[in-house]
Simulated scan of single mutants.
Amino acid sequence: MLACFLLLAIAPARAQLVDTARPNLAAQISTRIVEVTTGFTGAEILVFGAAERPLGGEAGDQVLVTVRGPRTPQVVRRRVEFFGIWVNGPSARFLDVPGFYAIAGTRPVWEVLPEEARAEGMLGLDTLPLAARGAQEPSFRAALLALKQADGRWQEHAVPVEVSGGRLFLARIPLPATVPTGPYLVEVLLVRERRVVAQQTLNLEVRRVGTAAWISAVARQAPLLYGVACILLASLAGWLGSVLFRRS
């Protein structure tokens, strides 16, 4: 009888330990460094991994992948017509804007997480805290969203996360030619029953190399010299063009 009571007392404790155990999630990226050269036309990073339970579908676990780039200020201006001439009008300065943002998932994030969880984790373009100085009209935020999405620097479920074998996943995140340099943060989230139950963070760096790095360093450290060199090169190109066209 005493042995039975001991078994009954131990069983719930064991069940509780199993229920609260953190689900296994393993993720990796195809490269840790993306090199930007003078001929850089864009790149693609692969985020892949595995989970312990089936992924996708209506009842399975879901995977979300986010990639965030360095944050910089951004100015959005409205052009206005003044006596037949278009000039800069009101402007909004957004103080903390991610230079690159991408989110992908086995299903869209708004289908697998409640609004509160999305806002807390800044999961989705509509959750980015875009505080602005100057003009406060919603049209400036909408214009910023449109501009960033048009050149590929902000992406929201452009390509879904692929599932293979039930437990393996793969996300293809394209980086445009205009991608900013600096440190990037890659986050992989495992979602179960509309809750994030596991998370893994990976680091990525986008950096200039070769001639592109040298030109960027000169532009930052000696802007006057850089400006004079650009003017001289433009003048030389114009002179060569006029000579060639005159001969032809």
Results as ranks from 00 to 15, higher is better:
Arg78His: 11
Thr72Met: 13
Glu52Leu: 04
Asp96Ser: 14
Val47Gln: 03
Pro98Asn: 05
Asn88Asp: 15
Tyr101Trp: 11
Val159Pro: 01
Ile103Gln: 05
Leu144Pro: 05
Glu44Asn: 12
Arg153Asp: 10
Gly99Leu: 09
Gly165Asn: 05
Leu147Ile: 07
Val67Tyr: 03
Val80Arg: 14
Leu144Asn: 04
Ala171Met: 07
Thr127Lys: 05
Asp61Ser: 14
Leu95Gln: 14
Arg53Ile: 01
Leu145Ser: 05
Trp154Ile: 05
Gly134Ile: 09
Arg172His: 14
Gly182Thr: 00
Ala59Tyr: 08
Val163Ile: 15
Val87Asn: 02
Leu175Tyr: 00
Ile45Met: 06
Gly42Tyr: 01
Gly60Lys: 03
Glu156Asp: 08
Leu147His: 11
Leu175Lys: 00
Gln74His: 14
Ala135His: 06
Thr72Asn: 09
Arg153Ser: 14
Leu125Thr: 06
Phe169Pro: 02
Gly182Asp: 01
Gly69Trp: 03
Ala150Arg: 13
Glu137Ala: 12
Ala102Ile: 02
Ala132Cys: 09
Ile103Met: 06
Asp151Trp: 06
Ala143Tyr: 02
Glu187Gln: 14
Leu113His: 04
Trp110Asn: 13
Ala132Ser: 15
Val63Glu: 06
Thr127Val: 03
Asp151Tyr: 07
Pro73Ser: 13
Leu144Val: 09
Leu170Thr: 11
Ser164Phe: 14
Ala104Trp: 01
Met122Phe: 12
Glu187Met: 11
Val67Arg: 01
Leu147Tyr: 11
Leu125Trp: 05
Gly56Lys: 02
Pro108Met: 07
Tyr101Ile: 04
Arg78Ala: 11
Arg167Phe: 07
Ala171Leu: 02
Leu128Thr: 02
Phe83Met: 10
Val112Thr: 08
Ile173Leu: 13
Phe94Gln: 05
Ala158Phe: 02
Gly57Glu: 07
Arg141Cys: 05
Ala135Gly: 04
Glu137His: 09
Arg77Asn: 15
Thr127Glu: 09
Leu95Ala: 15
Ala143Ser: 13
Ala43Gln: 08
Leu125Val: 14
Ser164Gly: 13
Val75Asn: 07
Ile103Arg: 07
Arg141Phe: 03
Pro183Ile: 00
Pro160Gly: 04
His157Arg: 01
Glu111Asp: 14
Phe100Gly: 03
Ile103Leu: 13
Gly49Pro: 00
Leu123Val: 11
Thr106Arg: 05
Gly166Val: 07
Glu44His: 02
Trp110Gln: 14
Arg71Val: 13
Gly124His: 05
Leu144Cys: 09
Glu111Gln: 13
Leu168Ser: 14
Thr181Asn: 02
Glu162Asn: 13
Pro108Ala: 11
Phe140Tyr: 15
Pro183His: 00
Ala158Asn: 04
Trp110Met: 09
Leu123Ser: 04
Tyr101Cys: 09
Ala135Lys: 06
Ala171Trp: 08
Pro114Val: 08
Pro129Ser: 10
Val87Arg: 11
Gly49Ala: 12
Ser139Gln: 12
Arg79Trp: 00
Arg141Thr: 15
Val186Asn: 00
Glu162Leu: 15
Ala43Trp: 10
Gly57Leu: 07
Val161Pro: 03
Trp154Glu: 02
Gly105Pro: 04
Gln149Asp: 04
Leu170Pro: 00
Ile173Ser: 01
